[in-house]
Simulated assay, not measured.
Amino acid sequence: MNDITGHILNVFLGFFAIMNPVANTAVFVGLTSEESDAEKRQIAIKALLVAFCIVTAFALLGNVIFHMFGISLPALRVTGGILVFFIGYNMLNGERSKMHKPRGEDHAADDGVAISPLAVPILAGPGTIATAINFSSAGGWTETVITIAMFALLCVVTFFFFIGSRKVVSTLGKSGLNIVTRLMGLILAVIGVQMLIEGIVGAAVNWHNYAS
């Protein structure tokens, strides 16, 4: 039971760090600054639903993708670990990763913004997808269900952050957002290193078994 609780907490914190609802709230405000409250709600719902569907698909089909392309779990963990680490490293330096940065900062906020850049790549970027596959592939259906459930929970949390975006930004201020971003970056970098270590150990074990 303790192992399951620890896994649930690890998955939620991993997703929370890489999606960073607080920092993404500032992005949401910038993208929807000219929209009404009703339009903001619609954009938030659509973006989060799209992100949830994408992450769920990769969480469910991760093993199929592995077999189809001949990808091993250690290889994914090493690649995902490096990817997640560099996203965290950029956040530690007070920067947004290029994988999370909207391509068109001067985009007029409209319904299309919900899909890109908000849903992809800000909410469901490469790092989020790699994290979902890594967590869901760590075991059986229990891990997959936990991964999807925790991402769904985070989507709900993010929705409330987005809806109360003005209050969040005004309460924390620029300095507060920077502090939160750096803290999330530290957590993310550690998770990335952990994924990298597990990938290297797994690859070494596979190589040893193959050589034997």
Rank of each mutant, 00 (worst) to 15 (best):
residue 134 N to F: 12
residue 115 I to Y: 07
residue 173 G to T: 04
residue 176 G to C: 13
residue 41 R to Q: 13
residue 65 I to L: 15
residue 25 T to I: 09
residue 147 T to G: 12
residue 149 A to E: 04
residue 136 S to Q: 14
residue 180 V to G: 04
residue 134 N to T: 15
residue 51 A to I: 03
residue 183 L to Q: 03
residue 180 V to M: 13
residue 200 I to T: 07
residue 202 G to K: 05
residue 211 A to W: 11
residue 95 E to W: 10
residue 122 I to Q: 07
residue 151 F to Y: 14
residue 157 V to M: 11
residue 140 G to N: 07
residue 149 A to M: 09
residue 208 H to N: 13
residue 53 C to D: 01
residue 124 A to C: 12
residue 161 F to C: 02
residue 181 T to M: 05
residue 42 Q to L: 11
residue 56 T to H: 06
residue 73 L to Q: 07
residue 22 V to F: 10
residue 104 G to H: 01
residue 60 L to G: 09
residue 178 N to Y: 08
residue 6 G to T: 10
residue 44 A to W: 09
residue 1 M to G: 13
residue 112 G to A: 04
residue 53 C to Q: 01
residue 1 M to L: 00
residue 17 A to G: 13
residue 99 M to N: 09
residue 127 G to Q: 10
residue 91 M to A: 15
residue 162 F to L: 05
residue 158 T to R: 00
residue 19 M to W: 02
residue 22 V to L: 05
residue 16 F to E: 04
residue 114 A to M: 09
residue 66 F to H: 04
residue 92 L to Y: 02
residue 11 V to Y: 06
residue 90 N to T: 01
residue 132 A to L: 06
residue 72 S to C: 04
residue 177 L to I: 14
residue 106 D to P: 03
residue 131 T to C: 07
residue 203 A to T: 11
residue 94 G to D: 06
residue 144 T to E: 15
residue 1 M to R: 00
residue 194 Q to M: 13
residue 76 L to W: 06
residue 39 E to Y: 05
residue 114 A to I: 06
residue 176 G to S: 13
residue 194 Q to L: 14
residue 33 S to I: 11
residue 19 M to Y: 03
residue 56 T to V: 15
residue 84 V to P: 05
residue 7 H to T: 11
residue 35 E to S: 12
residue 10 N to I: 00
residue 153 L to P: 03
residue 155 C to V: 14
residue 69 F to Q: 13
residue 121 P to D: 05
residue 135 F to G: 04
residue 179 I to E: 03
residue 165 S to E: 05
residue 57 A to R: 08
residue 38 A to Q: 07
residue 148 I to F: 08
residue 95 E to M: 13
residue 98 K to P: 13
residue 199 G to L: 12
residue 200 I to R: 00
residue 210 Y to G: 02
residue 112 G to V: 03
residue 145 V to F: 07
residue 41 R to P: 14
residue 5 T to L: 15
residue 206 N to S: 12
residue 155 C to S: 12
residue 171 T to M: 08
residue 88 G to F: 13
residue 144 T to V: 15
residue 103 R to Y: 00
residue 2 N to K: 12
residue 41 R to Y: 13
